[in-house]
């Protein structure tokens, strides 16, 4: 079985995001970029399934600009067999990403597609569900435990009420939650080895994907700031302050 893994490059989660004063975007120049944390988890899960003998091949997929190569090499260094770089200079909406994954699925026929539950830049939380809908296959979102056996996936999902377990026939789409696993670190020799692994580059335009985006972002703003409050010196003062506000 092949596993396709979404491997999006985003602004690193430790960076403090600044909105440009003119409201046209956020500052990304010179800012550290990393793999979406949920996608590192997706790749880790795929690698573990390969190590267990459930899968033979793990393919990382990135949809984005020409300079994505170094990022995809990280995925190869972590252990993916090969990478597909779908190249486009335009912003990629979740619907476009889902349609693109569907084209790759037609070509690669994977048994499983693992994506992050959300990209921490757009925080959309849509691509996996959209892909499963377009593909007409099961979706198991927000996964915190995955078991594959007998042509089906048994997945534990983190939902508001607790932990839900569902069963999905393969092929299926799984999206990862943070507690699914802890991604391995990339080792130096693996970076060297990754240089020899193949990266297929495909132009998004050549896939025949409808990339029209009917949602436009017209303005970016910084969130309203909460101002620093007061410090109290002990429990009695805190209780008094809360009583004064009518909160106790």
């Amino acid at each position: 079985m092949k596993i396709l893994v979404g491997y999006k490059r985003v602004v690193d989660y430790n960076v403090r995001i600044q909105v440009k004063p003119d409201g046209t975007g956020v500052v990304t120049d010179g800012v550290k970029l990393s793999a979406n944390p949920f996608d590192d988890i997706a790749l880790e899960e795929a690698l573990r399934l390969r190590e267990k003998g459930v899968a033979e091949e793990v393919i990382v997929v990135g949809i984005g600009p020409a300079d994505l190569t170094a990022h995809l090499r990280n995925g190869l260094a972590m252990g993916a067999n090969r990478a597909i770089h779908v190249q486009t200079a335009d912003a990629v909406s979740p619907l476009t990403a889902a349609r693109t994954f569907l084209k790759l699925i037609e070509k690669e026929q994977p048994g499983l597609v693992i994506l992050g539950k959300q990209a921490i830049d757009d925080d959309a939380n849509q691509t996996g569900q959209m892909l499963a809908g377009l593909w007409d296959r099961p979706q198991a979102t927000f996964a915190s435990k995955v078991e594959i056996a007998g042509g089906k996936a048994t997945v534990t999902r983190e939902v508001d009420a607790g932990l839900e377990t569902i069963e999905a026939d393969l092929p299926a789409v799984i999206t990862t939650d943070l507690r699914l696993n802890e991604p391995r670190f990339i080792k130096l020799p693996d970076i060297m080895k990754a240089k020899a692994k193949p990266i297929d580059v495909i132009e998004l335009a050549s896939l025949g994907v409808d990339a029209a985006d009917h949602i436009k972002t017209t303005h970016y703003a910084a969130p309203p700031k909460r101002s620093k409050g007061v410090m109290v010196k002990d429990a009695a003062e805190l209780v008094a302050a809360l009583k004064q506000k009518g909160l106790l």
Binding site: L95, Q126, Q129, M130, T141
Partner: peptide
């Protein structure tokens, strides 16, 4: 909620729109 996040994008995809 986790219910809406799971469901709505699948509906959107079937309707051919982003969310």
């Amino acid at each position: 909620t986790t219910f809406g996040k799971d469901l709505a994008p699948r509906v959107a995809a079937l309707l051919g729109v982003s969310q």
